[in-house]
Design a protein around this nucleic acid. Structure first.
Lengths: 204, 204
DNA sequence: AAAAAATGTGAACATTGTTCAACAAATACC
DNA sequence: GGTATTTGTTGAACAATGTTCACATTTTTT
Protein backbone atom coordinates (compact mmCIF):
# COMPACT_ATOMS: atom_id res chain seq x y z
CA UNK A 1 0.00 0.00 0.00
CA UNK A 2 1.23 3.39 -1.00
CA UNK A 3 -1.41 5.01 1.09
CA UNK A 4 0.03 5.99 4.43
CA UNK A 5 1.62 9.04 2.88
CA UNK A 6 -1.61 10.03 1.25
CA UNK A 7 -3.45 9.53 4.53
CA UNK A 8 -0.95 11.66 6.41
CA UNK A 9 -1.02 14.26 3.73
CA UNK A 10 -4.80 14.46 3.71
CA UNK A 11 -4.82 14.47 7.48
CA UNK A 12 -2.50 17.41 7.80
CA UNK A 13 -4.36 19.24 5.11
CA UNK A 14 -7.59 18.80 7.01
CA UNK A 15 -6.03 19.86 10.28
CA UNK A 16 -4.76 22.97 8.57
CA UNK A 17 -8.16 23.78 7.12
CA UNK A 18 -9.74 23.17 10.53
CA UNK A 19 -7.23 25.46 12.16
CA UNK A 20 -7.64 28.15 9.52
CA UNK A 21 -11.41 28.02 9.86
CA UNK A 22 -11.14 28.28 13.62
CA UNK A 23 -8.77 31.23 13.36
CA UNK A 24 -11.03 33.02 10.90
CA UNK A 25 -14.00 32.42 13.17
CA UNK A 26 -12.05 33.90 16.06
CA UNK A 27 -10.15 36.75 14.45
CA UNK A 28 -11.58 37.28 11.01
CA UNK A 29 -9.89 36.97 7.65
CA UNK A 30 -7.36 39.67 8.44
CA UNK A 31 -6.44 37.88 11.66
CA UNK A 32 -5.38 34.71 9.87
CA UNK A 33 -1.64 34.18 10.45
CA UNK A 34 0.48 31.36 9.10
CA UNK A 35 2.16 30.84 12.47
CA UNK A 36 -1.08 30.65 14.42
CA UNK A 37 -2.56 28.21 11.94
CA UNK A 38 0.39 25.85 11.98
CA UNK A 39 0.61 26.00 15.78
CA UNK A 40 -3.06 25.12 16.13
CA UNK A 41 -2.72 22.39 13.53
CA UNK A 42 0.28 20.99 15.36
CA UNK A 43 2.89 21.20 12.64
CA UNK A 44 5.87 23.31 11.70
CA UNK A 45 5.56 26.57 9.86
CA UNK A 46 7.04 25.23 6.66
CA UNK A 47 4.70 22.24 6.52
CA UNK A 48 1.90 24.55 5.48
CA UNK A 49 3.60 25.13 2.14
CA UNK A 50 3.85 21.46 1.48
CA UNK A 51 0.21 20.75 2.26
CA UNK A 52 -1.20 23.73 0.38
CA UNK A 53 0.03 26.25 -2.13
CA UNK A 54 -0.04 29.25 0.20
CA UNK A 55 -2.31 31.08 2.64
CA UNK A 56 -4.58 32.23 -0.17
CA UNK A 57 -5.35 28.68 -1.16
CA UNK A 58 -5.99 27.80 2.45
CA UNK A 59 -8.57 30.58 2.59
CA UNK A 60 -10.18 29.24 -0.56
CA UNK A 61 -10.40 25.80 1.01
CA UNK A 62 -12.10 27.25 4.07
CA UNK A 63 -14.44 29.16 1.79
CA UNK A 64 -15.25 25.94 -0.04
CA UNK A 65 -16.41 24.41 3.19
CA UNK A 66 -18.48 27.41 4.10
CA UNK A 67 -20.08 27.44 0.66
CA UNK A 68 -20.90 23.75 0.92
CA UNK A 69 -22.51 24.12 4.32
CA UNK A 70 -24.42 27.20 3.20
CA UNK A 71 -25.49 25.27 0.14
CA UNK A 72 -26.90 22.50 2.32
CA UNK A 73 -28.91 24.99 4.33
CA UNK A 74 -30.36 26.57 1.20
CA UNK A 75 -31.13 23.22 -0.37
CA UNK A 76 -33.07 22.04 2.67
CA UNK A 77 -34.86 25.35 2.89
CA UNK A 78 -36.07 25.19 -0.68
CA UNK A 79 -37.01 21.55 -0.67
CA UNK A 80 -39.60 22.08 2.08
CA UNK A 81 -41.76 24.44 0.02
CA UNK A 82 -43.61 24.66 -3.26
CA UNK A 83 -44.89 28.23 -3.84
CA UNK A 84 -42.20 30.14 -5.77
CA UNK A 85 -42.55 33.29 -3.73
CA UNK A 86 -42.51 31.29 -0.49
CA UNK A 87 -39.31 29.62 -1.57
CA UNK A 88 -37.69 32.95 -2.35
CA UNK A 89 -38.70 34.43 0.96
CA UNK A 90 -37.46 31.39 2.82
CA UNK A 91 -34.15 31.41 0.97
CA UNK A 92 -33.65 35.07 1.77
CA UNK A 93 -34.44 34.45 5.41
CA UNK A 94 -32.09 31.49 5.56
CA UNK A 95 -29.32 33.51 3.95
CA UNK A 96 -29.72 36.33 6.44
CA UNK A 97 -29.63 33.88 9.33
CA UNK A 98 -26.56 32.13 8.04
CA UNK A 99 -24.74 35.42 7.68
CA UNK A 100 -25.74 36.55 11.16
CA UNK A 101 -24.77 33.24 12.74
CA UNK A 102 -21.45 32.87 10.92
CA UNK A 103 -20.40 36.42 10.18
CA UNK A 104 -16.64 35.89 9.95
CA UNK A 105 -16.56 32.85 7.68
CA UNK A 106 -19.39 34.27 5.63
CA UNK A 107 -17.50 37.53 5.17
CA UNK A 108 -14.38 35.63 4.21
CA UNK A 109 -16.14 34.23 1.14
CA UNK A 110 -16.63 37.69 -0.29
CA UNK A 111 -13.74 39.66 1.15
CA UNK A 112 -10.92 37.40 0.17
CA UNK A 113 -8.91 38.86 -2.69
CA UNK A 114 -6.03 37.25 -4.51
CA UNK A 115 -2.88 39.26 -5.21
CA UNK A 116 -2.99 41.69 -8.12
CA UNK A 117 -3.35 39.81 -11.37
CA UNK A 118 -4.11 36.35 -9.99
CA UNK A 119 -7.40 34.62 -10.75
CA UNK A 120 -9.24 32.13 -8.58
CA UNK A 121 -9.07 28.61 -10.03
CA UNK A 122 -12.11 27.27 -11.82
CA UNK A 123 -12.97 24.65 -9.19
CA UNK A 124 -13.44 27.43 -6.68
CA UNK A 125 -15.28 29.84 -8.94
CA UNK A 126 -17.82 27.18 -9.80
CA UNK A 127 -18.58 26.48 -6.17
CA UNK A 128 -20.26 29.86 -5.93
CA UNK A 129 -23.05 28.49 -8.08
CA UNK A 130 -24.66 26.82 -5.06
CA UNK A 131 -25.67 30.30 -3.98
CA UNK A 132 -28.08 30.57 -6.87
CA UNK A 133 -28.97 26.97 -7.67
CA UNK A 134 -32.08 26.99 -5.48
CA UNK A 135 -33.31 30.22 -6.99
CA UNK A 136 -33.59 28.95 -10.50
CA UNK A 137 -36.62 26.71 -10.12
CA UNK A 138 -38.92 29.22 -8.41
CA UNK A 139 -37.74 31.90 -10.78
CA UNK A 140 -38.48 29.76 -13.81
CA UNK A 141 -42.06 29.40 -12.55
CA UNK A 142 -42.39 33.12 -12.28
CA UNK A 143 -40.74 33.73 -15.62
CA UNK A 144 -41.47 30.78 -17.93
CA UNK A 145 -40.58 33.03 -20.84
CA UNK A 146 -36.88 33.18 -19.98
CA UNK A 147 -34.26 30.88 -21.47
CA UNK A 148 -32.24 28.69 -19.09
CA UNK A 149 -29.26 30.91 -19.70
CA UNK A 150 -31.23 34.03 -18.93
CA UNK A 151 -32.66 32.39 -15.83
CA UNK A 152 -29.19 31.80 -14.43
CA UNK A 153 -28.25 35.37 -15.13
CA UNK A 154 -31.35 36.74 -13.48
CA UNK A 155 -30.97 34.39 -10.50
CA UNK A 156 -27.47 35.77 -10.03
CA UNK A 157 -28.88 39.27 -10.05
CA UNK A 158 -31.50 38.36 -7.48
CA UNK A 159 -28.98 36.76 -5.21
CA UNK A 160 -26.57 39.65 -5.56
CA UNK A 161 -29.26 42.15 -4.62
CA UNK A 162 -30.13 40.33 -1.42
CA UNK A 163 -26.48 39.75 -0.69
CA UNK A 164 -25.74 43.44 -1.08
CA UNK A 165 -28.33 44.35 1.52
CA UNK A 166 -27.01 41.80 3.99
CA UNK A 167 -23.40 42.77 3.42
CA UNK A 168 -23.79 46.51 3.74
CA UNK A 169 -25.95 46.00 6.78
CA UNK A 170 -23.50 43.73 8.55
CA UNK A 171 -20.66 46.08 7.79
CA UNK A 172 -22.63 48.96 9.15
CA UNK A 173 -23.32 51.22 6.25
CA UNK A 174 -27.03 52.01 6.12
CA UNK A 175 -29.47 49.36 7.11
CA UNK A 176 -29.77 49.50 10.88
CA UNK A 177 -27.85 46.89 12.83
CA UNK A 178 -30.74 45.08 14.58
CA UNK A 179 -31.32 41.69 13.07
CA UNK A 180 -35.08 42.12 12.82
CA UNK A 181 -34.71 45.26 10.75
CA UNK A 182 -32.35 43.53 8.36
CA UNK A 183 -34.69 40.57 8.02
CA UNK A 184 -37.61 42.90 7.40
CA UNK A 185 -35.73 44.86 4.75
CA UNK A 186 -34.71 41.72 2.94
CA UNK A 187 -38.30 40.57 3.06
CA UNK A 188 -39.47 43.86 1.62
CA UNK A 189 -36.85 43.68 -1.09
CA UNK A 190 -37.81 40.17 -2.14
CA UNK A 191 -41.44 41.18 -1.96
CA UNK A 192 -40.89 44.12 -4.25
CA UNK A 193 -38.83 42.04 -6.64
CA UNK A 194 -41.35 39.22 -6.72
CA UNK A 195 -44.15 41.58 -7.60
CA UNK A 196 -41.97 43.31 -10.12
CA UNK A 197 -40.99 40.01 -11.62
CA UNK A 198 -44.59 38.92 -12.01
CA UNK A 199 -45.50 42.12 -13.74
CA UNK A 200 -42.43 42.05 -15.90
CA UNK A 201 -43.80 38.81 -17.22
CA UNK A 202 -46.34 40.60 -19.37
CA UNK A 203 -44.46 43.73 -20.31
CA UNK A 204 -40.72 43.14 -20.61
CA UNK B 1 1.98 84.38 11.10
CA UNK B 2 1.82 80.89 12.48
CA UNK B 3 0.63 79.63 9.19
CA UNK B 4 3.57 78.35 7.24
CA UNK B 5 3.56 75.20 9.29
CA UNK B 6 -0.10 74.66 8.72
CA UNK B 7 0.34 75.20 5.02
CA UNK B 8 3.21 72.73 4.84
CA UNK B 9 1.33 70.26 6.91
CA UNK B 10 -1.77 70.47 4.75
CA UNK B 11 0.40 70.34 1.66
CA UNK B 12 2.14 67.16 2.65
CA UNK B 13 -1.13 65.62 3.71
CA UNK B 14 -2.60 66.34 0.31
CA UNK B 15 0.44 65.02 -1.49
CA UNK B 16 0.14 61.84 0.53
CA UNK B 17 -3.53 61.46 -0.28
CA UNK B 18 -2.76 62.11 -3.96
CA UNK B 19 -0.03 59.51 -3.91
CA UNK B 20 -2.19 56.97 -2.09
CA UNK B 21 -5.00 57.50 -4.56
CA UNK B 22 -2.65 57.08 -7.46
CA UNK B 23 -1.20 53.90 -5.99
CA UNK B 24 -4.64 52.44 -5.35
CA UNK B 25 -5.65 53.29 -8.91
CA UNK B 26 -2.57 51.52 -10.17
CA UNK B 27 -2.27 48.53 -7.88
CA UNK B 28 -5.47 48.28 -5.92
CA UNK B 29 -6.03 48.51 -2.19
CA UNK B 30 -3.82 45.53 -1.46
CA UNK B 31 -1.02 47.10 -3.46
CA UNK B 32 -0.86 50.19 -1.31
CA UNK B 33 2.55 50.31 0.41
CA UNK B 34 3.79 52.94 2.84
CA UNK B 35 7.16 53.16 1.07
CA UNK B 36 5.68 53.61 -2.39
CA UNK B 37 3.31 56.28 -1.15
CA UNK B 38 5.98 58.31 0.62
CA UNK B 39 8.33 58.01 -2.34
CA UNK B 40 5.65 59.25 -4.74
CA UNK B 41 4.73 62.03 -2.31
CA UNK B 42 8.37 63.03 -2.03
CA UNK B 43 8.86 62.64 1.69
CA UNK B 44 10.48 60.26 4.12
CA UNK B 45 8.82 57.10 5.32
CA UNK B 46 8.31 58.40 8.83
CA UNK B 47 6.67 61.63 7.70
CA UNK B 48 3.56 59.66 6.85
CA UNK B 49 2.97 59.03 10.53
CA UNK B 50 3.21 62.68 11.32
CA UNK B 51 0.77 63.73 8.63
CA UNK B 52 -1.80 60.98 9.25
CA UNK B 53 -2.54 58.43 11.92
CA UNK B 54 -1.56 55.39 9.86
CA UNK B 55 -2.19 53.72 6.50
CA UNK B 56 -5.76 52.91 7.43
CA UNK B 57 -6.58 56.54 7.93
CA UNK B 58 -4.91 57.36 4.64
CA UNK B 59 -7.20 54.89 2.91
CA UNK B 60 -10.19 56.49 4.59
CA UNK B 61 -9.08 59.88 3.31
CA UNK B 62 -8.84 58.52 -0.22
CA UNK B 63 -12.26 56.95 0.20
CA UNK B 64 -13.62 60.30 1.34
CA UNK B 65 -12.52 61.83 -1.90
CA UNK B 66 -13.98 59.05 -3.96
CA UNK B 67 -17.27 59.30 -2.12
CA UNK B 68 -17.37 63.04 -2.67
CA UNK B 69 -16.73 62.73 -6.37
CA UNK B 70 -19.25 59.93 -6.69
CA UNK B 71 -21.70 62.08 -4.75
CA UNK B 72 -21.25 64.89 -7.25
CA UNK B 73 -21.97 62.57 -10.14
CA UNK B 74 -25.13 61.26 -8.50
CA UNK B 75 -26.29 64.72 -7.56
CA UNK B 76 -25.96 66.00 -11.10
CA UNK B 77 -27.64 62.91 -12.45
CA UNK B 78 -30.67 63.30 -10.24
CA UNK B 79 -31.03 67.04 -10.68
CA UNK B 80 -31.57 66.68 -14.43
CA UNK B 81 -34.77 64.64 -14.10
CA UNK B 82 -38.21 64.74 -12.52
CA UNK B 83 -39.96 61.36 -12.93
CA UNK B 84 -39.12 59.23 -9.88
CA UNK B 85 -38.54 56.07 -11.84
CA UNK B 86 -36.42 57.95 -14.37
CA UNK B 87 -34.29 59.30 -11.57
CA UNK B 88 -33.79 55.84 -10.12
CA UNK B 89 -32.85 54.36 -13.44
CA UNK B 90 -30.45 57.19 -14.12
CA UNK B 91 -28.84 56.87 -10.69
CA UNK B 92 -28.37 53.16 -11.18
CA UNK B 93 -26.82 53.72 -14.57
CA UNK B 94 -24.53 56.42 -13.22
CA UNK B 95 -23.46 54.16 -10.38
CA UNK B 96 -22.62 51.33 -12.74
CA UNK B 97 -20.61 53.64 -14.94
CA UNK B 98 -18.70 55.10 -12.04
CA UNK B 99 -17.80 51.64 -10.80
CA UNK B 100 -16.70 50.51 -14.25
CA UNK B 101 -14.65 53.63 -14.85
CA UNK B 102 -12.99 53.72 -11.43
CA UNK B 103 -12.96 50.09 -10.34
CA UNK B 104 -10.02 50.24 -7.95
CA UNK B 105 -10.94 53.32 -5.93
CA UNK B 106 -14.57 52.27 -5.98
CA UNK B 107 -13.66 48.85 -4.62
CA UNK B 108 -11.50 50.43 -1.96
CA UNK B 109 -14.55 52.11 -0.43
CA UNK B 110 -16.15 48.79 0.30
CA UNK B 111 -13.19 46.47 0.76
CA UNK B 112 -11.24 48.45 3.26
CA UNK B 113 -11.42 46.86 6.71
CA UNK B 114 -10.00 48.22 9.92
CA UNK B 115 -8.07 45.91 12.24
CA UNK B 116 -10.12 43.59 14.44
CA UNK B 117 -12.07 45.61 16.97
CA UNK B 118 -11.52 49.08 15.51
CA UNK B 119 -14.45 51.17 14.28
CA UNK B 120 -14.41 53.78 11.52
CA UNK B 121 -14.72 57.29 12.94
CA UNK B 122 -18.07 59.02 12.68
CA UNK B 123 -16.97 61.63 10.14
CA UNK B 124 -16.20 58.83 7.72
CA UNK B 125 -19.24 56.71 8.41
CA UNK B 126 -21.49 59.65 7.72
CA UNK B 127 -19.92 60.32 4.36
CA UNK B 128 -21.51 57.15 3.05
CA UNK B 129 -24.86 58.88 3.23
CA UNK B 130 -24.21 60.61 -0.09
CA UNK B 131 -24.77 57.23 -1.70
CA UNK B 132 -28.43 57.32 -0.76
CA UNK B 133 -29.22 61.03 -0.51
CA UNK B 134 -30.45 61.25 -4.09
CA UNK B 135 -32.67 58.23 -3.70
CA UNK B 136 -34.81 59.65 -0.97
CA UNK B 137 -36.77 62.17 -2.97
CA UNK B 138 -37.90 59.87 -5.79
CA UNK B 139 -38.62 57.17 -3.26
CA UNK B 140 -40.78 59.48 -1.17
CA UNK B 141 -42.86 60.19 -4.26
CA UNK B 142 -43.39 56.50 -4.81
CA UNK B 143 -44.09 55.83 -1.16
CA UNK B 144 -45.69 58.93 0.37
CA UNK B 145 -46.90 56.69 3.19
CA UNK B 146 -43.43 56.12 4.64
CA UNK B 147 -41.96 58.17 7.48
CA UNK B 148 -38.71 60.06 6.80
CA UNK B 149 -36.88 57.54 8.95
CA UNK B 150 -38.38 54.63 7.07
CA UNK B 151 -37.53 56.33 3.78
CA UNK B 152 -33.85 56.47 4.68
CA UNK B 153 -33.89 52.85 5.68
CA UNK B 154 -35.58 51.79 2.47
CA UNK B 155 -33.29 53.95 0.36
CA UNK B 156 -30.34 52.20 1.98
CA UNK B 157 -31.86 48.88 1.05
CA UNK B 158 -32.39 49.98 -2.54
CA UNK B 159 -28.86 51.21 -2.87
CA UNK B 160 -27.45 48.08 -1.27
CA UNK B 161 -29.34 45.88 -3.69
CA UNK B 162 -27.98 47.66 -6.73
CA UNK B 163 -24.55 47.82 -5.18
CA UNK B 164 -24.58 44.07 -4.56
CA UNK B 165 -25.24 43.38 -8.22
CA UNK B 166 -22.47 45.66 -9.36
CA UNK B 167 -19.99 44.35 -6.84
CA UNK B 168 -20.53 40.65 -7.44
CA UNK B 169 -20.45 41.28 -11.15
CA UNK B 170 -17.20 43.22 -11.09
CA UNK B 171 -15.60 40.61 -8.91
CA UNK B 172 -16.71 37.90 -11.25
CA UNK B 173 -19.21 35.84 -9.36
CA UNK B 174 -22.36 35.45 -11.46
CA UNK B 175 -23.44 38.31 -13.61
CA UNK B 176 -21.49 38.09 -16.84
CA UNK B 177 -18.55 40.42 -17.20
CA UNK B 178 -19.66 42.44 -20.24
CA UNK B 179 -20.64 45.93 -19.23
CA UNK B 180 -23.85 45.92 -21.24
CA UNK B 181 -25.12 42.85 -19.45
CA UNK B 182 -24.42 44.38 -16.07
CA UNK B 183 -26.18 47.58 -17.05
CA UNK B 184 -29.14 45.61 -18.34
CA UNK B 185 -29.40 43.55 -15.17
CA UNK B 186 -29.28 46.63 -12.98
CA UNK B 187 -31.97 48.16 -15.14
CA UNK B 188 -34.12 45.05 -14.78
CA UNK B 189 -33.57 45.04 -11.03
CA UNK B 190 -34.56 48.67 -10.61
CA UNK B 191 -37.51 48.05 -12.91
CA UNK B 192 -38.70 45.16 -10.83
CA UNK B 193 -38.21 47.06 -7.63
CA UNK B 194 -39.98 50.15 -8.91
CA UNK B 195 -43.00 48.14 -9.92
CA UNK B 196 -42.91 46.26 -6.67
CA UNK B 197 -42.65 49.47 -4.74
CA UNK B 198 -45.65 50.96 -6.48
CA UNK B 199 -47.74 47.93 -5.71
CA UNK B 200 -46.48 47.76 -2.15
CA UNK B 201 -48.04 51.17 -1.75
CA UNK B 202 -51.51 49.71 -1.58
CA UNK B 203 -50.89 46.44 0.16
CA UNK B 204 -47.98 46.61 2.59
C1' DA C 1 19.37 86.15 17.21
C1' DA C 2 18.60 82.68 20.60
C1' DA C 3 15.43 79.56 22.56
C1' DA C 4 11.53 76.68 22.05
C1' DA C 5 8.39 74.02 19.47
C1' DA C 6 7.12 71.36 15.74
C1' DT C 7 8.34 68.57 11.89
C1' DG C 8 11.14 65.72 8.71
C1' DT C 9 14.55 61.88 8.38
C1' DG C 10 15.92 57.24 7.80
C1' DA C 11 17.78 53.62 10.43
C1' DA C 12 16.05 50.14 13.42
C1' DC C 13 12.34 47.08 15.06
C1' DA C 14 8.40 43.89 14.96
C1' DT C 15 5.41 41.15 12.39
C1' DT C 16 4.50 38.29 8.75
C1' DG C 17 4.55 35.30 4.40
C1' DT C 18 7.63 32.30 2.08
C1' DT C 19 11.82 29.53 0.99
C1' DC C 20 15.39 26.20 1.74
C1' DA C 21 19.08 23.07 3.33
C1' DA C 22 19.29 19.60 6.53
C1' DC C 23 16.93 15.82 8.74
C1' DA C 24 13.27 12.11 9.16
C1' DA C 25 9.87 9.05 7.54
C1' DA C 26 7.73 6.29 4.15
C1' DT C 27 8.01 3.48 0.12
C1' DA C 28 10.01 0.71 -3.49
C1' DC C 29 13.09 -2.57 -4.80
C1' DC C 30 16.01 -6.49 -4.15
C1' DG D 1 14.02 -7.82 5.90
C1' DG D 2 17.35 -4.36 4.52
C1' DT D 3 18.87 -0.70 1.61
C1' DA D 4 18.10 3.19 -1.69
C1' DT D 5 15.02 6.52 -3.26
C1' DT D 6 11.45 9.37 -2.90
C1' DT D 7 8.65 12.28 -0.13
C1' DG D 8 7.57 14.99 4.02
C1' DT D 9 8.94 17.85 8.05
C1' DT D 10 11.53 21.15 10.47
C1' DG D 11 12.80 25.65 11.93
C1' DA D 12 16.21 28.93 10.82
C1' DA D 13 16.86 32.47 7.51
C1' DC D 14 15.04 35.86 4.16
C1' DA D 15 12.24 39.44 2.24
C1' DA D 16 8.54 42.61 2.49
C1' DT D 17 6.16 45.76 5.11
C1' DG D 18 3.95 48.82 8.92
C1' DT D 19 5.46 51.51 12.66
C1' DT D 20 8.55 53.88 16.02
C1' DC D 21 12.17 56.80 17.62
C1' DA D 22 16.53 59.45 18.45
C1' DC D 23 18.37 62.88 15.98
C1' DA D 24 18.63 66.74 12.58
C1' DT D 25 16.21 70.46 10.40
C1' DT D 26 12.92 73.94 10.00
C1' DT D 27 9.64 77.19 11.82
C1' DT D 28 7.82 80.05 15.41
C1' DT D 29 8.21 82.82 19.42
C1' DT D 30 10.39 86.14 22.25
Amino acid sequence: MTTKREANRADLRNRLIDAAESQIKKHGLKGLKARDVTTEAGCALGALYNAVEDLDQLVMLVNSRTLASLGDVLQETASALTEPSDIMQALGKAYVEFALNNPKVWSAIFFHRLPEGAEAPDWHKQEHAILIDQLIEPLSEMRPDLSPQMLRLRAGTLFSAVHGVVQLSLHGRFVGAPAEILAAEVKALIDAMSRGIHLANVSE
